[in-house]
Amino acid sequence: MINTFHSSYNPPPVPPRTGYSKPQPVGNSPLVKFLSVMLLLLMILTIGGFLYLFQKLNMQLQGSYQEDMTSLQRLQDCADSSMDSMTECGKLMEKYKAAIAKVSQANEKLSKLTGGPHVIGPAAHMTALSEHKDKNSDFLKTNSLLWDEEQSLVQDVRFSNKRDKLTIQYPGIYFIYSQVTFSKPSTSFGLKQSIRSIDPKTQDVKELLKSFCSLDPDASSDLCTASLSGVFRLEKDQQLYVTVANTSLVNRNSCSFGLFKLQ
């Protein structure tokens, strides 16, 4: 017999077999839950570590800023002569100059590595301390010539607090020169200038160069200039200065002292 019965409804589902259980979704397995918890902990630890490092770095920067401001204030107090201990000012200035020298050396190395413009090495050209700046007549109280740092070139070389000596920062071969003009004759000492050096280890004083000139005692307006120059190997912390027998005979308008590193 041909079945001619038709229906639009789907047939009923097959009843489950005995002992059959529906499989759980993959996302609810214990392994996935464990990995989710570990990932959450890792994110918390990462964010916490980042916040800790950020806070620590921020505190270090603030501490460094406060330190710098304190140092600048102390330098300002030294400039205003309001500090009781001038020895402390001297030590502070030495640290400041040493830091500047290190920065300059680092910039020179960086320039060589990057192929940038070459920074000039250690050099100095000193000009004698003028009379209107020498209010206490310090120039006449010593045989060493005093120099005006504001009117001089000083780079990668330390200038002493007494304004008479240059201290080598970087050892090497240097060209040294000086020129001293005399305006008055001397019959007892002679018109002589010399560049002297202080050994950094033994503190022994050595005369590196010397020169002479002469003036007619009967002439009142004559000038004579003693010049000298030479090449020397200098060590770190070696000190150089120019000395004369009598600084009252010197014409300060035409005196200079300098050096520069050859290699």
Rank of each mutant, 00 (worst) to 15 (best):
L240H: 07
Q155N: 12
S144G: 06
L249V: 05
Y65W: 04
I44V: 15
N107E: 12
G48P: 00
V26C: 05
H132W: 07
D134S: 05
N143H: 11
C255R: 02
C213D: 00
L262P: 02
T167I: 10
P13V: 08
L215V: 04
L145A: 06
D216N: 15
F260H: 15
S248F: 02
K91T: 10
T46W: 09
I2C: 10
K109L: 14
R233Q: 11
E88Y: 12
N253C: 05
K165H: 09
M69D: 09
M69Y: 05
A79C: 05
K33G: 03
D237T: 05
P13E: 10
A99E: 13
Q151N: 06
L72R: 12
S178C: 14
L40T: 10
S178A: 15
Y241F: 15
G172N: 08
Y170E: 15
A98Q: 10
Q55L: 13
S85H: 05
S130I: 03
R158Q: 10
S256D: 13
M83G: 06
R252Y: 00
F5A: 12
Q155K: 15
Q179S: 15
E67H: 12
E149M: 07
G230Y: 03
Y20F: 15
I195N: 03
F212E: 13
A219K: 13
K192T: 13
T181F: 06
M59G: 01
S194H: 01
K133I: 04
Q263S: 15
L75F: 02
P185T: 10
F5P: 00
L140I: 09
K135A: 14
M86D: 07
Q193G: 04
D148Y: 09
L45T: 13
E67W: 06
A99P: 00
E88T: 14
M59Q: 11
L234P: 03
I195V: 15
S211G: 02
S29K: 04
E131T: 14
A219Y: 03
S36N: 09
S188M: 12
S220W: 09
V157G: 00
D68V: 07
Y9L: 13
N58L: 08
S227K: 15
E149I: 12
M86K: 13
I120N: 01
C78V: 07
I176E: 01
M43N: 10
I44W: 07
Y177R: 09
K135I: 13
R17L: 11
C78R: 04
D222R: 10
N136P: 00
I168H: 00
E94Q: 14
G115Q: 03
A128S: 04
P217K: 01
L166K: 01
L166I: 02
S160E: 03
M93W: 11
D80W: 02
G121W: 01
P122N: 01
S186K: 08
F212Y: 14
N10M: 07
M38T: 08
Q169M: 08
G90F: 04
T18Q: 10
L209T: 00
L72H: 05
R74D: 06
